[in-house]
């Protein structure tokens, strides 16, 4: 099943299928290790619902839902 990263519920994990978007945001995602093939797990949402926290490549990363929407994850 394929979902966008922002739709994952807490505790779900999967493998990144593709990264959409453009420009700086996309490059930043790549630089932070959000590349196709990487394993990713949804950790938690911030107290106000956004941004979200994920784990990948052995560390914690936080990003907004709007940015996470660019990332497709295969569960």
């Amino acid at each position: 099943m394929i979902k966008n990263l922002n739709e994952l519920s807490v505790g779900e994990s999967g493998v990144i299928k593709s990264v959409a978007g453009a420009g700086m945001v996309r490059r930043r995602l790549f630089d932070m290790g959000v590349t196709p093939g990487a394993e990713i797990a949804m950790k938690k949402r911030a107290p106000l619902g956004d941004p979200i926290e994920i784990t990948l490549r052995g560390y914690f990363l936080t990003l907004r839902k709007s940015e996470a929407a660019c990332v497709e994850v295969e569960l």
């Binding site: 700086m24 995602l29 941004p51 560390y59 914690f60 936080t62």
Partner: peptide
């Protein structure tokens, strides 16, 4: 602006 940030241990 975007918000993509490491949360260090």
């Amino acid at each position: 602006p975007p918000f993509i940030m490491e949360l260090p241990a």
